[in-house]
Write a protein that binds this DNA or RNA. Structure first.
Lengths: 112, 112
DNA sequence: TCTTGACACTTAGCATTTTTAAGTATTAAA
DNA sequence: TTTAATACTTAAAAATGCTAAGTGTCAAGA
C-alpha cells in the first residue's frame, strides 16, 4: 500500500471504524490496521488531520477525557456522519465495481 | 462518481484500457466510459495529462498520425508499462480487499 | 451558409487531500 | 535511565485529478 491510493477513501474508512462505537484517534489507527490485516497502517498525521476535517464537516463530534494520565480525544459518529457513511459506502461499491469492470478486459496473467 | 476517488487509481485504469491494443487519447476516454458503464466519464484534461505522465515514466510510447484531417497521438504499452499494470493491478486487489474488510464491520443497513 | 456538436489535443492554475517531519507529553518496561 | 508505546498537534511538501480556456478539423442540420 503506497502512493495515494487512499485519496478520497480515507473518510469512508474512518467513518466505518467509528460506526460500531466511539473511539479515540489512536484506537482508530489501531483498529484500521487490524481490520485491514495490516494493509492500512496509517501515519498519525494523516488520521488526526482527517478526523479534524470530519468533525468540521459535522460527521463526528469529539470529547476530551483523561485515562491514566494520558489525554484522549474520543470521536463519535453523528447522524449526519452516519448518512455520509451510507452514501460513501454506496459510492465505494460503485467505484470499485467500475474499476473491476475495466480490469476485466485485461489479459491475465501476462507472465509465462 | 465525484470527489477524488480516482486519485492514485487513474494510472491503473489507463494502463488497463491500453493493454489490449494501442489507442489514441480520445479513444481511451471513450473506452473507459463504456467499460465502466458510464461511471468513469473523465474530462479530457485529466486523461491527456495522465497519459503524458505515463509516457514520461516509460510506461507508454506515443506516435502521431493523421486520420481524416485530424491528428492523433496513439499510445502503446511498453514492457515496463505492462509490468506496472501487473503490479498496480495486484496493489488494487490488495487495496480493495482491505477496504471491503474494513467495511465488513459496518452494521448494514442502518435504515429501518 | 452558418452554426452546432463531435472529434482531438494542449496548457496553466486550482483544489484537495495525504504524507512528511518535527514537536510535546505520559507511562511502562527493559 | 533509556526506550518503546501511547496520544495528540501542526506546518509544509507532494501528488494528482479537475477546471477552464484555447486551438483546429469535420459532418450534419437549420
Amino acid at each position: 500500500m503506497s502512493g495515494q491510493a487512499l485519496k478520497g477513501h480515507l473518510d469512508l474508512l474512518l467513518l466505518a471504524v467509528l460506526s460500531d462505537g466511539a473511539k479515540h484517534g489512536y484506537a482508530v489507527i489501531d483498529e484500521l490496521r487490524t481490520r485491514s490485516d495490516e494493509v492500512f497502517d496509517l501515519p498519525e498525521g494523516s488520521v488526526y488531520v482527517a478526523l479534524h476535517r470530519l468533525e468540521a464537516a459535522g460527521f463526528l463530534v469529539s470529547e476530551w477525557s483523561e485515562v491514566q494520565g494520558r489525554r484522549r480525544r474520543t470521536y463519535r459518529l453523528t447522524e449526519v456522519g452516519r448518512n455520509a457513511l451510507s452514501e460513501q459506502s454506496r459510492a465505494w461499491s460503485e467505484f470499485s465495481a467500475a474499476v473491476f469492470s475495466v480490469l476485466k478486459g485485461v489479459p491475465w496473467p501476462t507472465t509465462p
